[in-house]
Amino acid sequence: MRGEALYLPLSPYASLLTDANMPLITLSNVYKTYRHGSLEVTALTDFSLEIAEGEFIVLAGPSGSGKTTVLNLVGGLDRPSAGAVTVGALEIASASAAVLADYRLRRVGFIFQSYNLIPVLTAAENAEFTLMLQGVPRPERRRRVTELFIELGIEGLEERRPGDLSGGQQQRVAIARALAAAPGVVLADEPTANLDSHTAEELLDLMRDLNRRRGVTFLFSSHDDRVIGRARRVVRLEDGRMVGDSTTNR
């Protein structure tokens, strides 16, 4: 079954657009400042960006350029200090904590640099976790995750704990977790930073394939040229400002 295209049904929450002509994600004149004691650090300055549904876009830039901050804002983990962040019809700045939690649960999938799998859960349980939070019955959870594991090439590893998996396998489990609830947007923060070149390229191809087949919007942050080279659109940041936005025909 590996390599075969398995199209999982999208959840009713997957599509976030209320108007097909509108961009899926819009950041308008966003400022974000953090306070570290008495010190105020500016992470984003007058940052604006529009992302259409189904894009495969990379935020590129050195450490501290504001890439993760953009992901956090789009993912509803943080709110802008000024400006507006909207995802579909959801205005992040004004949404309540409960609405943001529900948004993260049903509409966004996260992939992290260090995988962030729960070590005491098996690979399948990790992937099922968001479905469990959504109240999906166990047989249905297991069915969806089994199909995803086949699609991601990690079938047979369902009952292994993260500590018994390689870095590449762990990141695939993390991708399965991000996709299990069939979200509209997947946010990946330096997803290949801890992987060797071969594994990183395999994973990137896999995510690119998922993006094409599922129409899921992928937003990466990376300073890895392998990632940047596979993106159709690259947004470059420096010191919290956008310094470039280029699109290729990849």
Partner: peptide, 16 residues
Amino acid sequence: TREFGLLLATGMRPWG
């Protein structure tokens, strides 16, 4: 702490 951050990021509510 990091794991709780992950749980919150995946949409788990504080009461959860």
